[in-house]
Design a protein around this nucleic acid. Structure first.
Lengths: 318, 318
DNA sequence: TTGAAAGCGCTAACAT
DNA sequence: ATGTTAGCGCTTTCAA
């Protein structure tokens, strides 16, 4: 068995509670004693058992992080930042992937509930009411989704979408298609709301899976819609769309302009390089962890997005 | 406070040990009793506290997964698969990012040791001896690195590199550059070994960070080397290299052929689309989890790679 | 088949 | 400043 607090106590001739204090409340222990205990502990290779500690303190020093798809660069960069931020505060993070399945999402939250001090929900697909109910079992912070009474980090896609559409309009596009995302997606709804609010003639095509395949499967509808400008749910969809378009001898941006969302790596190297709405994923990850660790009044923090114009958008042909 | 085993016991009129058995050894409890306890538990929303369970059983039902860079698609797809496989067996997984820092890597393993039943080390940068020592504290499975006496999952990059070089040679390239990776990287060493073993005239350029920037910074050396064919440490490096080459008016594949490793998304959409060695990351993730959960004699499982020829390689100009 | 009791590693009053 | 004690939620002998 591993070395416990008791081994350290014995070896350093003090009581276990003194050893405990040495680690969790050092100022309550005599400097000399502390030094000795620390030396012995180090010698024996002692490390406090967090699970045992959690049992008494109620704080696990663990966080849960739930995303729809770990392999999606949007999420993985968020995970990276969140995990780094958590580590700074000596927290470990469980990462789980729902595969876009709300059912799995709920199970995961339940499963994490007892084992973590809080859960980060990134772009959840669950119903608001379900999320609120689960929020009573474990502290939740939600990213990219508005849920009443829960601390929230939002990336302002609505504004991004507005900019994107204005950009297309300024290029002379009269008919614009919005290739929407999964039905449960807040981001997708925000984009639709922004599109509806504007002056432009926007047709909605979807829902679609938030993947390259989702984009490919929308190709026929896009062409049929007669749109010359397209805003896609995300870069993956935009890329799939461009590939599909290329196979149908429709050139981007000559025949159709395409804009994505996320600013992931593939879009930067594609041909043409993708115009996109850059999302502050790393900042969102850090912010969400901070909100979880410094429990704060439920409220919304909104992070700015920015339109990155590259080569997939051009003037509409007349 | 959350509902505990005791609440369930009281509400169903049995002793806690019976409730415990209902969950961890159902066959030892009367069918009727079991049904009743289960009903009550469900009613109360009881879920066993894994941490408390771990304290007595010694099994946490958690796994640790350590990678150099979560945002690297190579790793994120491995994480996705490993996490899914773990979940099938009712395991949760901690994910952590070392940012390529061996020091951090060691700290992470130590920190996880008490809290998990095993750790997956993906492409560790630590010295073999250190890894072996840590392997005494917690079960380890290593991916893409050969460490004595530790269960290992390898992807056969050596063979892949050989194929890649043969491919270049077949295209008429006489002088080939190998843009190597970080100095601690097993993969990089394997590639070098494979290159040395062959007949071709291969010059090594590196070490380099395994990133786009690493590729860009190698551009000058590549041009100076006079090589017409390049095998890069990974796709990211290859992409950075191609970008840098483009800025120096060197065209790929007309002037220089480039091959990457990993087959990540950006390479598939780039221009030109990248010839690469595809790595079985998902299979490796699943396999590693299986090895961790069905403790097996230390041994090596080797997974095949495959050369994917696309547009970044062409005949050498004469 | 079920209950009683001890104990996993640790912390947190309470005493001293 | 340090020791004593009880107990966190659960499992696991051992008895009944």
């Amino acid at each position: 068995m591993a070395v416990t607090i008791r081994d350290v106590a014995r070896a350093s001739g003090v009581h276990v509670s003194t050893v405990s204090r040495t680690f969790s409340a050092p100022h309550l222990v005599n400097a000399e004693t502390r030094t000795r205990v620390l030396a012995v502990a180090d010698d024996l290779g002692y490390r406090p058992n967090r699970a045992a500690r959690a049992l008494t303190t109620g704080r696990t020093h663990n966080l849960g992080l739930i995303v729809a798809d770990i392999a999606n660069p949007f999420f993985s960069s968020l995970i990276k930042a969140a995990q780094a931020q958590a580590r700074l505060r000596d927290y470990h993070v469980f990462v789980a992937d729902t595969d876009e399945d709300p059912q799995v999402e709920e199970e995961l939250i339940q499963a994490f509930a007892k084992q973590v001090d809080g859960v980060l929900l990134c772009g959840p697909r669950l119903a608001n009411s379900t999320i609120e109910r689960l929020g009573e079992q474990v502290p939740l912070v939600v990213v990219n989704r508005r849920v009443n009474d829960l601390p929230t980090v939002l990336m302002d896609v609505g504004r991004g979408a507005r900019q994107a559409i204005e950009h297309l309009v300024a290029l002379g596009h009269r008919r614009i298609a919005l290739v929407t995302g999964p039905s449960g997606s807040w981001t997708s709804k925000e984009m639709q709301a922004a599109a509806t609010a504007g002056e432009a003639d926007v047709v909605f095509l979807g829902p679609n899976p938030p993947t390259e395949l989702g984009g490919r499967s929308a190709v026929t509808d896009v062409i049929a819609s007669g749109a010359t400008g397209v805003l896609a749910y995300n870069d993956l969809v935009a890329i799939g769309l461009m590939e599909g378009l290329a196979e149908r001898d429709t050139q981007v941006p000559r025949d159709i302009s395409v804009i994505g969302v996320d600013d992931i790596l593939p879009g930067r190297f594609g041909s043409p390089r993708l115009t996109t709405i850059a999302m502050p994923t790393a900042a969102a990850g850090r912010m969400a962890v901070d909100m979880l660790l410094n429990p704060v009044a439920p409220g919304v923090t909104t992070l700015e997005t920015s339109l990155v114009v590259r080569e997939s958008t051009a003037e509409a042909r007349r």
